[in-house]
């Protein structure tokens, strides 16, 4: 997996407030340039059926994407739903990291903390789900 893809996953795990805060810090005084205005559109979601293994179009998913330049480097991000703010923040963070922003290391720590918090929520959710696991008894 490339650094871009790894970073995308990390940013995608960040909460809205974290992304907002990091984007403000990382765009700094020079700010950012818009390469592509946040754009709301659709991605056709494809699935593979289990009977013949063929792909089919399940349906479209509403997404927003944005592309910016920070410090001469480009960043791109896409989110589900209509959320120009989050798409833009994600793109700014991606671009700043690509431009080796001095604060990236600190930003990475904040994103990793969000990832851990999300993983905990998922573990708690799964723990709750596992309480509904059926325990059969022979009669």
């Amino acid at each position: 997996m490339s650094e871009r893809a790894r970073r995308f996953r990390l940013i995608a795990d960040g909460s809205d407030p974290t992304l907002r805060e990091l984007a403000q810090k990382l765009s700094g005084e020079d700010g950012f340039e818009l390469v592509r205005e946040p754009e709301v559109g659709m991605v056709m979601m494809r699935a593979t059926d289990i009977v013949e293994g063929i792909p089919f179009n399940l349906g479209e998913v509403l997404v927003t994407q944005a592309e910016v330049e920070v410090g001469g480097k480009r960043g791109w991000f896409m989110v589900m739903g209509r959320n120009a703010r989050r798409a833009l923040d994600g793109a700014i963070i991606d671009a700043a990291a690509e431009a080796s922003h001095p604060m990236w290391e600190e930003a990475e720590k904040a994103l990793l903390a969000d990832r851990e918090a999300m993983a905990r929520r998922r573990r708690r959710e799964w723990g709750e789900i596992m309480k509904t696991k059926v325990d059969f008894e022979e009669v």
Binding site: R4, A5, V79, M80
Partner: peptide, 21 residues
């Protein structure tokens, strides 16, 4: 179910979000 697209710069698969199915 994860919504995966190709990253426009690297071509790697990235997960944009999750869709309940």
């Amino acid at each position: 179910m994860p919504l995966r697209v190709k990253h426009p710069y690297s071509g790697d698969a990235v997960t944009v979000g999750e869709v309940e199915v």
